[in-house]
Design a protein around this nucleic acid. Structure first.
Lengths: 231, 231
DNA sequence: CTGTGGTTTTTTGCATTCAAAATGCATTCA
DNA sequence: TGAATGCATTTTGAATGCAAAAAACCACAG
């Protein structure tokens, strides 16, 4: 019982709030372009406005919300140009991460990535999309860790979060899913061979495909169905 | 992102505070490892604790201060590993920025960079170090702008700020200064030739040299003279 | 003289309160 | 009938108050 209390007070309240808000934004529970009403969120998250506001400032720094002076915060609604620019940076960060990982990964780390990969294949076989996504994220985290550069990892995480809500909504068809899995296999091969250029190549290609998927949906207007807010 | 469109008639207090604190940290007026006493800073900046705390949270997200639970914030004191990791990422970001700039720079932008370069040369000739630094920063900003990727620019700015206070303290000797200027001339040439690989090469070399300078000083203990606080 | 325990003081974290700005509505006038 | 202006409500921004945690201090014992 007391352990929970300690556990709660271990993480600062504004950090907990930031995490919850981040999840809500990334998973689309707060729609892009939606206003973040402070009083509303206070009741919902059972905290006062001070930690909430601190959390919102944090998310603004991460680029997940826009801060309008005297008008509060809104969930970012990316334009096509924003998506292009973001993926351009992401591709480079991921490419670098992959290169470094290929150079620095230990046998133990490689084994773990492989294990995660097979778990992910299991999800693929079962058509368990959410499990697939979860494993996918863990693999990418594992590769980032293998790159052994915390600055790179946290930068990647932060920027990736901005497009995560869009990637969340891209309902893969079977063919795209299959080729994504194939790309993952190439990643494992490149890692095992410690082939840094190959690793970069497959990761950049991976990101480029993701980008194009997101862009296509954005252009089709399937991501932001009702165009209500001016941006 | 989309907030840029909204004109900022009057900056919010927490933004002003964040700017001032950022300057104090980057220019070393707050020493690395120093504790940020809220009450003290409130009196100094003539604001109450609420906007100050929001600003500190922002700087924490930027990686300029560390947030210790229930113990406040301290100015980050980078370890040798931190410096290596940060410059590793910076080199890549700057390399990418240079590549994109070489591909995308307009004649007008190039002319402006050239003009800034000559102004900087004037400062060099006059041994005006602070003017040189100012122009140097403006040139890098101009190149970043020419890359035409706001996500890249802001990411670079944020990460660069973390090592700026160290670079601020590296008192260049004449020889190093001279070779820095030569590298800048190579940059202009590469830009003019729209030679992206060359641009990347010179920028990465530039950053590597800066990194080594910072590292040498760090190892010599000249940056953190009195080692008192644990990092 | 040094280490330990308890107490005081300081400092941080969160909640509440107060003030200012913006939004919405109704009334009024053209 | 439509637009503009003034008022009321809502919402954000900033300041203060209060409680808890950490640091500093001091006394005391070994």
């Amino acid at each position: 019982m007391t352990a929970d209390i300690i556990e709660i007070s271990r993480l600062a309240l504004h950090d907990q709030v930031a995490s919850r808000l981040r999840t809500m934004l990334v998973e689309g529970h707060i729609a892009p372009g939606a206003k973040l009403n402070e009083r509303e969120l206070c009741l919902q998250l059972r905290v006062s406005r001070t930690p909430l506001r601190e959390a919102i400032k944090l998310l603004a720094a991460e680029g997940l919300v826009d801060l309008l002076p005297n008008r509060g915060a809104v969930a970012v609604k990316l334009t096509e140009a924003d998506v292009l620019n973001t993926f351009e940076v992401l591709a480079m960060l991921e490419g670098m991460s992959g290169e470094l990982a290929a150079k620095r990964i230990t046998d133990e780390e490689l084994a773990e990535v492989r294990a995660l990969h097979y778990e992910m294949m299991a999800c693929f076989a079962r058509h368990d999309l959410s499990g697939y996504y979860r494993l996918n994220a863990r693999i990418h985290t594992a590769i980032n860790d293998a790159a052994a550069n915390p600055v790179l990892s946290s930068t990647y995480r932060s920027i990736n979060a901005r497009v995560q809500s869009l990637r969340f909504r891209t309902n893969q068809d079977e063919a795209k899913w299959k080729s994504a899995v194939e790309e993952h296999e190439q990643m494992i091969e490149a890692l095992a061979a410690r082939d840094a250029p190959a690793m970069r190549k497959v990761l950049v290609a991976h990101l480029t495909r993701k980008r194009d998927t997101v862009l296509a949906l954005l252009r089709a207007g399937e991501i932001y169905p009702q165009a209500h807010k001016a941006s």
